[in-house]
Design a protein around this nucleic acid. Structure first.
Lengths: 163, 163
DNA sequence: CTAGCATGTTTGACATGTCAATCGTCCGGA
DNA sequence: TCCGGACGATTGACATGTCAAACATGCTAG
């Protein structure tokens, strides 16, 4: 790093080789981490990360039910993605959809006993996996730094999104 | 953080609320970053991240060709994933598969002129996007920390994989 | 020589994701 | 009233991923 053009370094040029190396390490490793977590969740609980997110949101909801759009907002998914996923989860008996009492256009998504049971059984193993694969891999300072890095990336992403 | 059971803190228990918050920030943000990068690549070059990885590997290869299994190893994909992806890329004219001269079982994957052209055109915008969305979001110390975090996670993942 | 396992790759079935189009209901103004 | 757009959700077409099974050829023990 550090060719002799300091004023052109920031925000203008392509990444250096070192920056690119870090980028690749970072993105590939987070990918591997994600996929390892997903596979443990699958093996230990027969749930996908998507299933888990939906079940978590419903478990925390009043009456274990949410309007479809609220659910989408809560977990940050596009409507159509959620709709497809709910279809699959409904086939497996994890959730149930029924017409909303107050708005005939809308749908209420309900947690079924089967779904609640599946979620209960998955929580502890999943949290344990997060601890083992993420938290335990890092020193306390690294963990703190990871939080700050995430925050910085998020702010930057959101800022660029608005532009 | 920090209940009064210091000897049970490490490696045994579930994550604390703070650890869990960091985990969620971290994984959700890296996901958002990945998907933003993918969408820019798509818009700017009509390529998916998978396309880019394949084209990059072939571009760097001797004679712009690789055995299918070497390619899979190089980019870290499962064989079947690569096979499906190559099928799609072949339909679009980005690569070509032909029987390997030295081993009739094997397949050689060749970069086509179309594929080479697409890759050339995508490189600069893609690297610029990495710079803008990742490198520029972080301070130099954070960038260094990101590299160290990735390395630590990787080592930990690999260690647990062997167990 | 040949049965059977190893090797290299593909295939099929299905889960997951995105995008654009569709469908039904609601609502405000001519 | 009724029309057109807003709103809530689903659908279809297709890209991407995983897993297990299938295929074809190579190699080796007997």
């Amino acid at each position: 790093m550090t060719r002799a053009t300091p004023n052109r370094r920031r925000g203008r040029q392509l990444p250096t080789a070192e920056e690119l190396r870090i980028w690749r390490d970072f993105i590939e490793t987070t990918d591997a981490l994600r996929s390892r977590l997903a596979s443990r969740l699958q093996v230990e609980s027969s749930l996908s990360p998507g299933d888990y997110a939906v079940l978590l949101a419903l478990s925390e909801a009043q009456d274990q039910q949410l309007r479809s759009s609220e659910l989408a907002t809560h977990i940050g998914w596009e409507r159509s993605r959620l709709s497809h996923h709910l279809g699959r989860m409904e086939r497996r008996g994890l959730i149930r959809r029924q017409e909303c009492a107050t708005d005939p256009r809308g749908a209420e998504v309900h947690l079924t006993p089967t779904g609640a049971e599946a979620f209960r059984g998955s929580t502890v193993p999943h949290l344990r996996a997060i601890r083992e694969l993420f938290v335990d891999a890092l020193t306390p300072e690294q963990l703190r730094a990871a939080g700050e890095i995430a925050a910085a990336l998020r702010v930057h992403l959101d800022a660029r999104h608005k532009e």
